[in-house]
Amino acid sequence: MGELAAEKHVKYILSVEKRKDDFQSVVMEHLRMNGAYWGLTALDILGKLNTVDADEVVSWVMSCQHQSGGFAGNVGHDPHILYTLSAVQVLALFDKLDVLDVDKVTDYVVGLQNEDGSFSGDIWGEVDSRFSYIAILCLSLLHQLDKINVEKAVNFVVSCKNMDGGFGCIPGGESHSGQIFCCVGALALTGSLHHIDKDLLGWWLCERQVKSGGLNGRPEKLPDVCYSWWVLSSLIMIDRVHWINKEKLVKFILDCQDTENGGISDRPDDAVDVYHTYFGIAGLSLLEYPALKAIDPAYALPVDVVNRIRLRKKLAV
């Protein structure tokens, strides 16, 4: 089996910055905040966050904040809860949460909760259980979870649970590994994992592993490196990760590397991108691959970052 080409991946992530003529970066403009989160978290797991100028990143992040308190995917765009979480996570990576006007960000997130407990993604009202997780995580990082109606938020997430033990984007929606991650994460962060039938969900999740060792997102779909994160983190949160074959999954992720130019793709021999590079590295971290920082499955941030935030809360209390 090959090894993780860590140095090449660091170079690849840093090089995404320098590319000027690639269409991928054009269509990524509006979600640059997500790109920053993926790239920077991957760098941190690889122990190389210090190769980036923190002040520059922080000032760019803050320039994406809207007067409503929410963050946009880039300067001059509209705020969305997706980018607000990425912004808070990036600031957390650099230990710069103190630059935030916490009340303002909190107001923005709180304002997106609907009567039924669900969350909209922005003022246009799209509802999705992903946004419940994002809102709950965002407020957890800011120690403001008590500002929303947690009970209703939990009830909405639980209403997205299906008979196969999984979760969909709205009540009745098909179970999907990405949505399951969000719903399990939301329940984990609110101390509500008792709503999950762990054995049933754990079995559904471990059935996602296919012969190649990779994980898929739904029955009969192709495996994809990103599910190494969505499925694995969910299995860890419900304490069932030993049900999959870890060695085979490690091999699958390593087979998706571009060992020449760095980066990780969705499946072996496909084109690499920052998104899959992050999920591959984060997945390996969850699999306790050597020399990687541990990542927290619910916070989707390195464990030392999460501990720092938790400690602050204790000291504040």
Partner: peptide, 18 residues
């Protein structure tokens, strides 16, 4: 024009029409 700040971290390349 887009203001990417002084030294963008994930710099964006633009095709002309776009």
């Amino acid at each position: 024009p887009q203001d990417d700040g002084p030294n963008p971290i994930v710099a964006i390349a633009y095709k002309e029409d776009f």
